[in-house]
């Protein structure tokens, strides 16, 4: 555990780190505002990524600058949070978008993009998993 007193932070580091912290928090706020204001789910799913990309990056850079300048040795473990969030956010949002698309299509809601050959291949794979009586050759021959 590392601690520092705020009087040890030099002025340039306080100013630069504060600018990065403000950038990160402001972008997160804009993303949350978009989450409230945008109209459809497929528009809203884009908004919080402001917070998970440069919102998080700005906060992490700011805290790295402030901690490193105050404790006279590199404090870099915030990078771990950055790597983790950068890797996991696309996975979660893609799964959530796929689930929403699946729900909208199964309820025949208007305004949903039509199925592409790529999607029908995925559906065929799901059906193959669900119905073990189908042999593999049958499913492959059904595919366009």
């Amino acid at each position: 555990m590392t601690t520092f007193s705020h009087a040890d932070v030099p002025l340039w580091a306080a100013v630069v780190g504060s600018a990065f912290l403000l950038l990160g928090a402001g972008l997160t706020l804009i993303g949350a505002f978009g989450l409230v204001r945008l109209q459809s789910f497929y528009e809203r799913i884009h908004a919080p990524t402001l917070g998970t990309s440069w919102g998080m990056g700005g906060m992490i850079l700011g805290s790295i600058i402030i901690f490193t300048s105050a404790s006279a040795r590199p404090v870099l473990h915030e990078i771990l949070i950055g790597v983790f969030v950068t890797v996991t956010t696309p996975v979660t949002l893609m799964m959530l978008g796929r689930a929403a698309l699946y729900r909208d299509r199964s309820e025949l809601n208007p305004g949903v993009p039509p199925e592409t050959p790529d999607d029908s291949f995925a559906t065929a794979m799901v059906e193959r998993k669900e119905a073990p009586s189908h042999s593999e050759q049958e499913v492959v021959s059904q595919r366009p």
Binding site: G17, L21, G24, A25, T28, G31, A32, L35, F41, R44, I45, A47, P48, G51, T52, G55, M56, M59, I60, G62, S63, I66, F67, E78, I81, V85, T92, L93, L96
Partner: peptide, 19 residues
């Protein structure tokens, strides 16, 4: 989606609290 964004905001709030 809102729960995910809430988790991210809470994480950033803790980073600010650490500073």
């Amino acid at each position: 989606l809102a729960l995910d964004a809430l988790y991210v905001s809470a994480m950033l709030q803790l980073l600010a609290f650490g500073v």
